[in-house]
Structures are given as structure tokens and as C-alpha cells.
Design a protein around this nucleic acid. Structure first.
Length: 351
DNA sequence: AAGGCGGGGTC
DNA sequence: GACCCAGCCTT
């Protein structure tokens, strides 16, 4: 217990990581002499909040190509960053990303301490620890979904989440070494992502299987316990997709807070459990589509009814010219609506 | 302390 | 359908 940690477990984890670390675009492989770029670590960690590695890769690549440094990102236009983030979800992350980049650019560099990092927008307990450990080699302890699962199993902890969080933090801290804390953090997360998986954990090939209390008890697949969430209600809405004859679309920028905040979208009703009133954003011949968009958000299912119209060249309002319109810039539900509407509009034009 | 906040993969 | 994912912010 030289480091105040269980060196047996951390040594085995590190040996396993040296052989089996995932090859990730933002990662410096174990054994490399180069130091990770704090900008890339920060960007990847924010993208990875509640998001899978597979989903993040393409976004990380595009962001770093377009904005290679935190100074470049700080100088970006808000709408360009939101458009580049479109489809990744949790859009408050993109707004805070930009705020954070501008703050860091103003200071001159990323703070190295966990406290300094956590004072920045969009950086909470997990992300501050991750950046401090991975980018700056400080012995901070990360606690994400992977670590929670690994700790609950190693120590056979049956207290349900989120109540168990402080306990699991203690366990994770007890394993954090002074040496290579960043690689240790990534090792635990890699273990959780590839071996100690939520269902059907591969205990037979786990590097720390002999230390795992849940494996002895046979409880590993059932851990961690979680209090289950109530079912999602269904909400209804109407969206209006108006295309002018020059190809421009009638759209609106959503308010900066709340659902899909700051993102581009179609005008329409509020989304509520009651049937919405059909009030078009401007006059025209609005046709109801027979098919509706179905989309699930964090806390409700949406059934979005669509109205489409060909609008005359004389129509005014917030039109996005065809040359500037890119469905990839829209959040997914708006993209789905566009896909359905164009299929209908193009069909009606062809006839 | 609790609830809002995306989207896709998986079972 | 429900669960899961390198969580954070507001109230």
C-alpha cells in the first residue's frame, strides 16, 4: 500500500492496459513519450459525456480538422459550432464548449488543477478529474458509468445508484495510483467498455478477476443496481416546413436554453401531451402529411405531425437560402422532418 | 436532491 | 419497449 492504493489491482490493470489499450484518436498510447494535447483531451471528454466512443469519433475528427486549437475554436462563430455539433445531442454541451474555449483563450491556457478546470463551463466532477489525470498526470480519480460498474463489481456493492456514488468514489480513489494516474483512469474505463460490460461481462478474461468480489458471489451481471426511471410520456406537436420557390426554407433559431437550445429548427407548436392547435407560421396552402415523425428525447416520446407548403417568391420571414441549407446542420428530429417533407414536396412537384 | 437535457446501439 | 453510454447545469 505504498501509494495508499491497492497496488496489486492497479499494477495488473496497468499491465493489461499496456497490452490492450483501445486505439482512440484523442489518446496518446501507453508507453509513448509524447504528452497529450489538453485541447484534444478536453474536447474528447466533453463529447464523450453520456455519449458512446463510436458516436464521437467522426465529430472529434471534424472538429479538430476545422478548429485545431482552442484559440481557433474560441474564434469560431456560434452557429458554426452548433451546426458542427448537430446530431450529437445534449446541445448545452456545445454552448458550454464555446464558452469554455473563449475563457481558456482569454486566460491563455487550460488550468492544470482539478479545481481550476471545474470552474470552467461544461466541466464537472468527472471531466475535471479526467483532464487533470490524463492531460496533466495528476492523481485524480475519475468516476463515470464505466468506473461505477467496475467498482460495484470489484467490491460487490449492492447499494443502488445514485445513492452509491460516494461509496463507489471511495473505492475508485482507493485504487488510484500516484504513478500514471491518467493511464490508470483510462485503463479502468477501457476495462468497463470492453470486458466489464453492462451485460454478459467477460469475467473469464478479466485481468483482475481474482480480486472481484462480485465474481465470487456470482452477482456481477446484476451490478451496479439502479433505481429505475418512470416511463416516458408521449407528447404531440406540429411542425411547418415551408419551401419557397427559390428553394429557401422557412426556419427559426431556437432559444438558447431548453430543449435543442440554440439549434436551427422548423417553426411549429409547443410539444405537449395535449393535442396542439394547427396554427401555421404564415399564410399559404399547408398540406398535412399522412406520416408523422417519431422521435424519443431524454424524457418523452414525440410524435410530430408535419405540414408542408410551397411558398411564393414574395414570401418573407426567416428563410435560409438553399445554398446555405444543409440538413446535417439540424438536430436529428428536425432532420427527420426534413427528409419526410422533401419526399412529399418533390413528389408533388413531379406530378 | 431532483429533474431537464439527445441520440443511437443493443438486447 | 427498456437500458446503456468517458455527465453537467439549473432550480
Amino acid at each position: 500500500m505504498r501509494d495508499g492504493c491497492d497496488t496489486q489491482i492497479s499494477d495488473k490493470l496497468m499491465a493489461w492496459y499496456d497490452r490492450h489499450a483501445r486505439d482512440l484518436p484523442w489518446r496518446v498510447p501507453p508507453g509513448s513519450t509524447q504528452m497529450p494535447d489538453p485541447y484534444r483531451i478536453w474536447l474528447s471528454e466533453v463529447m464523450l459525456q453520456q455519449t458512446t466512443v463510436a458516436a464521437v469519433k467522426a465529430y472529434f475528427h471534424r472538429f479538430t480538422e476545422r478548429w485545431p486549437t482552442v484559440q481557433a475554436l474560441a474564434a469560431a462563430r456560434d452557429e458554426d459550432v452548433m451546426a458542427e455539433w448537430a446530431g450529437l445531442g445534449y446541445y448545452a454541451r456545445a454552448r458550454n464548449l464555446l464558452k469554455c474555449a473563449r475563457e481558456v483563450a482569454r486566460i491563455g491556457e487550460f488550468p492544470r488543477s482539478r479545481e481550476g478546470l471545474q470552474a470552467l463551463p461544461g466541466i464537472g466532477p468527472y471531466t475535471s478529474a479526467a483532464i487533470a489525470a490524463i492531460a496533466f498526470e495528476q492523481p485524480e480519480t475519475v468516476l463515470d458509468g464505466n468506473v461505477e460498474r467496475v467498482m460495484a463489481r470489484l467490491f460487490d456493492e449492492h447499494t443502488p445508484l445514485p445513492q452509491a456514488k460516494p461509496i463507489l468514489t471511495e473505492y475508485a480513489a482507493s485504487l488510484t495510483p500516484q504513478h500514471r494516474p491518467g493511464d490508470h483512469a483510462q485503463a479502468v474505463m477501457d476495462l468497463g467498455a470492453t470486458i466489464c460490460t453492462p451485460r454478459n461481462p467477460a469475467c473469464g478474461i478479466c485481468p483482475v478477476m481474482v480480486h472481484c468480489a462480485a465474481r465470487v458471489a456470482g452477482t456481477a451481471p446484476a451490478l451496479p443496481r439502479k433505481t429505475r426511471k418512470p416511463a416516458k410520456p408521449v407528447r404531440l406537436g406540429i411542425a411547418y416546413l415551408g419551401r419557397r420557390v427559390d428553394g429557401a426554407w422557412l426556419m427559426e433559431r431556437r432559444p438558447p436554453q431548453g430543449l435543442l437550445g440554440g439549434m436551427l429548427g422548423w417553426p411549429g407548436s409547443d410539444w405537449t401531451e395535449a393535442t396542439p392547435a394547427d396554427i401555421p407560421p404564415q399564410k399559404g396552402e399547408w398540406h398535412a402529411l399522412p406520416e408523422e415523425v417519431r422521435h424519443t428525447f431524454t424524457h418523452f416520446h414525440l410524435r410530430l405531425s408535419l405540414r408542408v407548403a410551397h411558398l411564393p417568391l414574395s414570401a418573407t420571414g426567416n428563410f435560409i437560402p438553399a445554398s446555405e441549407f444543409n440538413p446535417a446542420d439540424l438536430p436529428t428530429v428536425m432532420r427527420k422532418a426534413h427528409k419526410l417533407a422533401t419526399a412529399h414536396l418533390d413528389l408533388s412537384e413531379a406530378s
